[in-house]
């Protein structure tokens, strides 16, 4: 008889896990409320961070559009700020839809078939959202940075573009690098590592 078999016999015979305090109805209800609050807090922290960034973009573009585009009738400011808002809007809408799917899994909506299928479902939901987010990161962030750099110099630094092209490019590169650094850290914490872990578990399932 090997050690695992000995342990199996002891495990089943010992009853060493039998001393638990049973849950009372109100105690259980409190626990569920606490966990719901905790989940909402985790989700909310990420959501509001992203959403606030979108609001800032709208506020900034809106301000520039009204003050320098409409009032001063500057065609370049008008075009770029409208382009920036129009380009961001579908992403905000999609972000909210995708995020709602990710966050609001209704009670009982997911059946529990096997552990493998549960891991696959979780991996699928997370990777789908991450794919969308990467599209946003790679496509929209550089455009925002470019618009921001061009508008800042156009409005606040008089002179032709050829004269200030190097500073514009420098500001664009610095702002893009800052965004890239922040996004990289966010993606790693919220998506890459959890996805790697889930992939590792799924890989273990596929081993023969």
């Amino acid at each position: 008889m090997d050690h695992l078999e000995i342990m199996r016999n002891q495990w089943q015979g010992s009853g060493k896990h039998a001393e638990f305090t049973p849950f009372q109805e109100n105690e259980f209800s409190t626990l569920i409320k606490k966990q719901m609050k905790k989940q909402n807090h985790i989700i909310g922290r990420y959501f509001w961070g992203t959403f606030l960034f979108h609001i800032l973009i709208y506020a900034l573009m809106g301000h520039v559009l009204i003050k320098y585009g409409i009032v001063s009738s500057d065609q370049l400011v008008l075009t770029l700020s409208l382009f920036g808002i129009a380009l961001t809007f579908p992403f905000t809408a999609k972000l909210m839809i995708e995020f709602k799917k990710l966050a609001q899994v209704q009670r009982g909506s997911i059946g529990v078939s096997t552990i493998k299928s549960q891991v696959e479902i979780r991996y699928g939901i997370l990777s789908r959202y991450f794919r969308f987010k990467k599209l946003y990161d790679y496509f929209l962030i550089p455009i925002h940075c470019a618009i921001g750099a061009v508008l800042s110099f156009h409005i606040f630094v008089p002179g032709s573009f050829s004269y200030v092209s190097f500073p514009i490019i420098s500001v664009f590169v610095i702002s893009l690098a800052s965004c890239w650094y922040a996004i990289r850290s966010e993606n790693r914490t919220y998506f890459k590592l959890p996805l790697e872990e889930l992939k590792g578990i799924l890989g273990d399932f596929d081993k023969k």
Binding site: F23, F28, L31, I32, K34, Q35, M36, Q39, V105, R107, G108, S109, I110, G111, V112, S113, T114, I115, Q118, V119
Partner: peptide, 30 residues
């Protein structure tokens, strides 16, 4: 605590085809 929450969340989908203990193991291990 998280297991209890996940059990509570998944319970409406428990159809009784397997034993409750088996189902509970699935949720807790997951």
């Amino acid at each position: 605590q998280e297991m209890m929450y996940q059990l509570w969340k998944s319970y409406p989908s428990f159809d009784g085809r397997s034993k409750f203990s088996t189902w509970m193991y699935k949720v807790c291990l997951n």
